[in-house]
Write a protein that binds this DNA or RNA. Structure first.
Length: 473
DNA sequence: TGAAATGTTGGGGCG
DNA sequence: ACGCCCCAACATTTC
């Protein structure tokens, strides 16, 4: 009996895996395959932090499959040629996969589907790691949504199908050659900058379930308040698990349902994720080009020295530096701080949002082309349903409001932890004797602010104001 | 899923 | 007792 290929991509799980379940239902023996393809995504090949996660997620998936008597076959190379090779080796006539929605993935999969069907090989594709197909929801006029709230209203009225259980796995095809995961060098060595990451993250399907359960048990009840406090573990921290498909959004959806206001609030965040994918699907240029055409000729500043200070958490603005250091040391940043740090780069430093997006792409374990692109455009004011250009976060006020006890800043910017709360978010305003008592010398032990916040705000308002004029002209 | 400037109101100090 | 002023608190508007 000919085997069938299950091509794992961004669905590194066994439960609620439509492609896997359908392949099992065929009754034919399975070949479980993962392809590491850095060529097809081009400049959007996974970044370093993401590769660390991928390594551990593949390890976990491989062990889950081995536990039921199979193997996960690992191959590296352009997807089309690797698939051809595996088809030749196994004699498979059917391929199952769950859809990916990045522009390069759609292009790749369409070409693959046509080529494979031309060779009389069946291709069965299924809903990927979204709640609904991105082409399904439309406005009354039949256009894609560009505003979140009506999108969310439409989404929340849909019946989301129940998740599938782990399929009763059938026979596996005789094993074929697999590359060794370690040979892919997805994890850093010398220096191993991710040495401490296993204490923050538990990649894989089991870790995702645990994370969800802990969130539901410990944080959901207070989510509406604590989600904005970066010093508390008030958010779900499911983003990377969702990106790699270790848990599906509909598993999360059904674990919560629309039962109360808190659940509704959390599911609306899941809907932002959905909205971002919807936007990327309908605007394939989202990672490269501003949705608002007025921004096309905006004169962003190019300053690599200042950029490096932002990247490494040396701006002299404590909440920004704390966020950038959390990102650098843990591969993740709290969402509230992402907004603050991104706003500071784009508005106070006037550096192109695409430059910030690239940095996040390389450093985030949850780097996701749709979420990252849509969110950076949102904060820059050039995206769909975007923050108005004049909405400029004041990082001091944001710090005081969302990290009032300074727990977050003190954790990641320890050199100013001796400051009293009152000056923690604006050390430059502290009197000399307070700085002395905290053992701080500005410009030596901690930087002066990279940009004066008042002047930076005024400069941003002037720069962005020209956009309005250019439309009127 | 802002911030700052400006406007309004109402309580209390005080002439 | 009364009106005036100050200003905190809150609301509205503007960037």
């Amino acid at each position: 009996m000919k085997p069938v290929i299950v091509w794992f991509r961004q669905d590194l799980r066994l439960a609620d895996n439509l492609a896997l379940s359908a392949a099992c239902a065929s009754g034919q023996p399975l070949v479980c395959l993962f392809i590491l393809d850095d060529d097809t995504p081009g400049e959007w090949a996974s970044g370093a932090a993401s590769r660390w996660w991928l390594h551990h997620s593949l390890k976990a998936l491989g062990e889950s499959i081995e536990a039921v008597g199979g193997t996960l076959v690992l191959r590296r190379g352009p997807a089309a040629s690797v698939l051809s090779q595996v088809i030749c080796e196994t004699g498979a006539r059917k391929i199952y996969w769950n859809r990916c929605y990045e522009p390069y993935a759609i292009e790749r999969d369409c070409a693959l589907k046509a080529a494979l069907q031309g060779r009389n090989i069946e291709v069965h594709s299924f809903l990927g790691n979204l709640l609904v197909e991105p082409w399904r929801l439309k406005t009354r006029e039949g256009a894609p949504f560009r505003v979140f709230t009506p999108f969310w209203k439409a989404l929340r009225q849909l019946a989301i199908a129940d998740p599938l259980p782990v399929p009763a796995l059938p026979r596996f095809a005789p094993p074929i050659a697999s590359e060794r995961l370690e040979s892919w060098a997805l994890v850093p060595r010398a220096p191993d900058w991710a040495a401490a990451w296993p204490s923050f993250w538990d990649p894989g399907e089991a870790g995702a379930r645990t994370r969800l359960t802990e969130f539901l048990d410990e944080s959901l009840h207070a989510y509406t308040q604590t989600r904005d406090w970066p010093g508390r573990a008030g958010t779900s921290r499911l983003s990377a698990h969702l990106h790699f498909g270790e848990i599906s959004p509909r598993q999360v959806w059904h674990a919560l349902r629309l039962t109360d206001d808190v659940s509704e609030k959390f599911l609306s965040e899941l809907a932002w994720r959905e909205f971002s994918h919807h936007l990327l699907f309908h605007h394939p240029q989202l990672p490269e080009a501003p949705l608002d055409p007025r921004f096309a000729r905006f004169a962003w500043t190019r300053d690599d020295a200042q950029l490096a200070l932002w990247q490494h958490g040396q701006t002299g603005i404590p909440i920004v530096d704390a966020g950038m250091r959390q990102l650098w040391t843990t591969g993740w940043m709290h969402n509230r701080v992402r907004m603050i740090a991104a706003s500071f780069l784009v508005k106070h430093m006037l550096i192109d949002w695409r430059v910030g997006a690239k940095w996040f792409w390389d450093t985030l374990v949850d780097a996701d082309l749709a979420n990252n692109s849509a969110s950076w455009q949102w904060i820059a004011g050039c995206g769909a349903d975007a923050a108005p250009y004049f909405r400029i976060f004041n990082p001091v006020l944001q710090g005081q409001r969302f990290d009032p006890d300074g727990r977050y800043v003190r954790q990641f910017v320890p050199e100013i932890s001796g400051l009293p709360d009152r000056f923690l978010h604006s050390p430059w305003q502290a009197p000399a004797h307070v700085l002395d008592a905290a053992n701080i010398r500005l410009g030596t032990t901690y930087p002066h602010p990279l940009v004066d916040l008042t002047a930076g705000r005024e400069r941003a308002l002037r720069a962005f104001d020209r956009l309005k004029l250019s439309r009127a002209a």
